[in-house]
C-alpha cells in the first residue's frame, strides 16, 4: 500500500476501538511518515477530548432570560390547561343541557300524544 492510500484511512483508523486491516497496520509499522501522520491524528483527538473540560462563560443575562422564558412557557401551559378544562366543563354543561332539553321535549310529545289518544276515545 502507498502512503497516500493510508492517509485516506487514518481519520478512521485513529479510533482506538476500530480494528485496522493487517496490510494497513504493517505499512504503518514500517513507515515513519505514516506513523507521524497517525500521531498527529491521535494528538488532535486527545485535544478534542480535552476541549470537553473547557467551558465558555456566557454573557451575563443568559440564565435570567432562560428562566424567564421557561416561566412564560409554564404560564402559557397552565393557562392552556385551565382553558382546556373549562372547554371540557362547558362542553359537558352544554351536552347535559341538550340532553335535558331533549328529554323534556320527548316527555311533552309523549304527554300530548296520550292526551290526543284520550280525547279520541
Amino acid at each position: 500500500m502507498r502512503c497516500e492510500e493510508i492517509a485516506l484511512l487514518l481519520p478512521e483508523a485513529v479510533d482506538a476501538n476500530r480494528p485496522v486491516a493487517l496490510p494497513v497496520q504493517r505499512h504503518i509499522e514500517s513507515c515513519l511518515r505514516c506513523q507521524a501522520e497517525l500521531a498527529r491524528y491521535r494528538r488532535m483527538l486527545r485535544s478534542l477530548q480535552l476541549l470537553r473540560t473547557q467551558f465558555l462563560e456566557p454573557a451575563p443575562g443568559l440564565l435570567a432570560s432562560t428562566l424567564a422564558a421557561i416561566e412564560e412557557a409554564s404560564e402559557r401551559r397552565a393557562i392552556q390547561s385551565v382553558l382546556t378544562g373549562r372547554r371540557l366543563a362547558y362542553a359537558g354543561a352544554i351536552g347535559g343541557a341538550l340532553a335535558a332539553a331533549g328529554a323534556t321535549a320527548a316527555a311533552v310529545l309523549v304527554h300530548r300524544a296520550r292526551r290526543r289518544a284520550a280525547i279520541a276515545h
Binding site: 473547557q54 465558555l56 456566557p58 440564565l63 432570560s65 422564558a69 421557561i70 412557557a73
Partner: peptide, 28 residues
C-alpha cells in the same frame, strides 16, 4: 447546567447569539 449547555451550543453554532437562542430553546 447552563454553562455546560451554552458551551456545547456555542461549539455547535460558532455564534454567540445563536448559542444563546439554542440554550433557551433546549431548556424549553
Amino acid at each position: 447546567t447552563y454553562v455546560d449547555t451554552y458551551t456545547l451550543a456555542f461549539r455547535l453554532t460558532s455564534h454567540e447569539e445563536d448559542a444563546r437562542d439554542v440554550v433557551q430553546e433546549a431548556y424549553l
